[in-house]
């Protein structure tokens, strides 16, 4: 207990002595982790929206009128590894669909009613993953009985690269900001050690163990990281709650909702990340500092 009091007391005293520097480091951790929090949220929202859109993406293969055994073709395509689901749209259904689509266009409607046989039956295929779309399309084109393959094409590819790009960007930003926070924490610990170099020298002279000398500084760094992390999560969650309605109004096409589970998990992650940033920062500082090194 008295050990804990010592470590805690020393850390708080150090932080009080360099209040401005500590404030700077805590704010740096806060800003970095707040941005990390924002990036994670942004990435999650982008990714879940992309998933939703991609659920609606289908590859459509129009069939020759010669195809008799539709069921065997359907089950053959279903067995492909990258295919999730195959729906058969028969000629009469396709005609009904076409009528529905062109119900405001008298001319086209007239053409359809005149000779419905030119509208082909089709297989509507849902890929397991968006990325499989190209492969499925080219495989279908090589399949006998398939007249033509149609899909969202470039739009799908763009959606995929947008989603992946956002994810890479999020993580790159998070890593860069984390590194900046580590450097700033290391700097405050460096200054705290420098401010106490005489005391450290004496501690070492009278035989205080290396851990006894170091732990308060390590603890100080972790405490600064913890405070920065808590601030980031608090402000991040607050901003999400308060800003949700307004921003959702601005971008009606994008669903900003994330699950409570996601929020809890990422909040804990951010706080732990803050503590880790503090620990790594002070550990780096303690390793390179000449007053601490034996």
């Amino acid at each position: 207990m008295s050990r804990f009091q010592y470590v805690f007391g020393e850390a708080l005293r150090n932080m009080g002595r360099n209040a401005l520097v500590v404030l700077g480091a805590v704010l740096a951790v806060f800003v970095s982790l707040f941005l990390v929090f924002g990036t994670l949220m942004f990435g999650q929202i982008a990714s879940s929206n992309a998933d939703q859109w991609s659920d609606d993406v289908r590859v459509e293969a129009f069939l020759n009128d010669e195809v008799r055994n539709v069921e065997s073709l359907q089950s053959e395509i279903s067995d492909w590894a990258d295919v999730a689901e195959v729906d058969y749209i028969s000629k009469p259904e396709a005609v009904e669909n076409a009528k529905e689509i062109f119900k405001d266009n008298e001319a086209v409607l007239g053409l359809i009613e005149e000779d419905p046989s030119f509208i082909p039956a089709s297989l509507r295929i849902r890929p397991v993953d968006l990325q499989d779309y190209d492969r499925i399309a080219s495989q279908l084109e090589a399949t006998p009985g398939v007249l033509q393959v149609v899909s969202a094409g470039d739009a799908v590819n763009q959606l995929i690269s947008l989603r992946d790009g956002l994810q890479v960007f999020s993580w790159a930003l998070a890593i860069a900001l984390g590194a900046a926070a580590v450097a700033l924490i290391a700097n405050t610990i460096h200054m705290a050690v420098y401010a106490r170099r005489e005391e450290i020298e004496i501690m070492k002279l009278v035989g205080a163990s290396n851990w006894y000398v170091r732990v308060p500084f390590l603890f100080e760094g972790m405490l600064e990281g913890l405070i920065g992390g808590l601030l980031a999560v608090g402000v991040g969650l607050g901003a999400y709650r308060l800003g949700f309605d307004q921003i959702q109004g601005l971008v009606p096409l994008i669903d900003l909702t994330v699950t409570a589970d996601f929020l809890t998990q990422r909040s804990i992650l951010i706080v732990l990340f803050g503590v880790a940033v503090g620990a790594v920062g002070s550990a780096i500082s303690l390793t390179v500092h000449r007053y601490i090194r034996t």
């Binding site: 163990s209 290396n210 006894y212």
Partner: peptide, 22 residues
């Protein structure tokens, strides 16, 4: 090794010209 030095120091008292008081 360095990590054993603190224990050794406890059996050594040191006094310097500049006192080294806090």
């Amino acid at each position: 090794p360095n990590w054993k030095v603190p224990h050794l120091r406890r059996s050594i008292g040191t006094v310097f010209q500049d006192f080294k008081l806090l």
